[in-house]
Amino acid sequence: MEWFDLTVKDVKKVTKEATSVTLSIPDSIKNSFSWQPGQHIQLELTIDGERTRRCYSISSTWGQALTFTVKKIQGGKASTYINERLKADDLIKVTAPKGRFTLTPNSETRRSYYFFAAGSGITPIYSMLTTLLPNEPDSFAYLLYSNKDSKSTIFAEELVHLQKKYSDRLIIKHCHSSPGWFDDAPWRKGRIDTDAVHAFINECPPYAQDAQYYLCGPGSFIPDLKKALNEIDVPNTRIHMESFGGAKTPEKPTGDKAILNVNFNGEKHQIPVASNQSLLRAMLAEGIEAPYSCEGGVCGTCRCFLTKGEVSMQNNLVLDETDIKKGIILACQAIPQSKDIEIKYKT
């Protein structure tokens, strides 16, 4: 993975607890930094002498300066640092944008896009929305967005403007888990759950019939919503997902200590895997820069082929039966179930 030292161009508070950071991209590396709405960058911060890496989604509109938005998480080292200490002209280490959770507009396409976001899950979706609406004039967008209250809602004002500007093609509804006394009433009280998803689609059925569904939020948000969509006949091929920080991981299957043989970028490695360690974590610990992104079993960036041995996956929202039959696994979720494991990556 290549790291670039980039200068922070601007730091701007968007809510009391969230900050948008804009980076200067020198012309010499512009090509590496071309991106699609929905993609993210990885940051390496050295905070009080300790190195920390985090992924953040790009929140800006296609073609504008690269901006990412970070919500402060209680006890979150990186998010607190970015919200409280990062300032313009600071130098930070960044990777080139990547990720499979993308939306590339096409002026001749006509679709209905459903977006479901919780909290800072809005950041890639905001980039998608603001890029989509001007660039795909025949398409429609439907956003269901969940927050604690209106004050903590990232991009609240921007979304109001967007809705006014595209009133004939954009519907936005808010869910507030604890609405403030003086807030305008949200569309629905509580978090986005199965009932909310079903009610939203019943109330706002797709106008264009090529409907696509984008989910972004923390923890069980993704599996819960995916299930809610499946229940009303939405096929997986139309669901796109990105999991966000603060994931409550399901019970880890107990695993064995194992030896992993991996062929990566033409180099053969043999490394140890601790019991209950994921193959991905074992590789990263040994300095093998295997691809990954969400580490939640959602994005599919870490997919590879299991050619020997057995693993179990704690969370898999990407691979279907056919993939698994072919031996495809998610390295971030795979815990060894036998002593001798071998994987390979498609090059």
Partner: peptide, 12 residues
């Protein structure tokens, strides 16, 4: 001869 069916997701 083409059939149009509406799913519970209201998509045709």
């Amino acid at each position: 001869n083409i059939i149009i069916v509406k799913g519970r997701d209201h998509r045709l």
